[in-house]
Amino acid sequence: MKDEAAQQRAHAIFDPIARPYLGRPDVDIGPMFGSEGLRVRGKVFAFVGHRGSLVVKVPEERADEIVASGVAERMEMRGRAMREWLVVGPGAAAEWQPLTAEAFAYVDEITP
């Protein structure tokens, strides 16, 4: 279920973080999990989820560390935790920029 107010608050945090990426070669915005996300060569690395949280893709080992630190939770789809996808709430907004940077670097590296 989409929370419009939470999404607006999240976009107020995320959009200024996202803007510089859109000036980079091979980066655009496209569909992901019913939302729109930042993509590099067609692969999404960060987006605002339906409940107003940041969702990022990082290596599984790094995701384990971030979850253990309490900054994020694993994204779940149909009751299954996604290995490389994290949900970072607005309470950890200070982490959104560095995690978006990590996600970009990771997806940029693994995407031909």
Rank of each mutant, 00 (worst) to 15 (best):
M75P: 01
H50A: 15
P25M: 04
G42E: 04
P59A: 07
D15G: 12
R9I: 11
E60Q: 10
R9K: 12
P20I: 12
I110F: 08
V107W: 00
P112N: 07
I66A: 00
D28M: 07
I66D: 00
F14L: 05
A94I: 04
V44I: 12
G34N: 12
E4Q: 12
G42R: 04
G52N: 01
A81E: 15
E84Y: 06
P98F: 08
M75R: 01
A92G: 04
M75N: 09
D15M: 09
P20F: 11
R41F: 13
G91Y: 08
Y106I: 05
E109C: 05
G91F: 09
R24C: 06
T100H: 03
V107F: 01
V58H: 00
G89R: 09
L99R: 03
D3H: 10
Q7C: 15
Y21H: 11
L86H: 07
Y21G: 07
F14N: 02
G34P: 09
D15L: 10
E95F: 02
F33R: 08
T111Y: 08
L38W: 07
A103V: 05
D3E: 14
E84R: 09
K43L: 08
K43C: 09
M77Y: 11
Q8I: 11
Q97L: 10
Y21P: 05
I66H: 02
E73S: 12
P16R: 08
R39L: 01
V88Y: 03
A63M: 03
E36A: 04
A103T: 07
R41N: 13
P98W: 08
A72Y: 02
I13F: 06
P16H: 10
G52K: 02
I13L: 14
T100A: 06
R78Q: 15
F33S: 13
K43S: 13
I17S: 05
I29H: 03
G70I: 08
G89V: 06
P20W: 11
A12P: 06
A92T: 11
E61Y: 02
E95R: 06
R51N: 14
G49C: 14
A46V: 10
M75L: 15
A6W: 09
R41K: 11
F45V: 05
Y21M: 10
F14M: 07
S53I: 03
I29A: 11
P90W: 04
E61D: 15
V107S: 03
L54R: 03
A18I: 04
Q97D: 15
E102N: 05
I29W: 01
A18C: 10
F14S: 05
V107G: 01
P25F: 02
L38K: 08
G52I: 04
S35R: 07
P59I: 02
F45R: 06
V27Q: 05
A103G: 12
D64L: 06
E76H: 07
W96Q: 00
E84T: 13
L22D: 15
I29V: 15
G23F: 09
F33E: 15
E102P: 00
P25D: 14
E109A: 15
R51T: 15
E36F: 00
Q97A: 15
P20Y: 10
E73R: 08
F14T: 02
P25A: 13
A94C: 01
E65P: 00
Q7I: 14
V48Q: 02
L38T: 10
A103R: 00
F14V: 05
M75D: 08
I110N: 09
V87L: 12
I13Q: 04
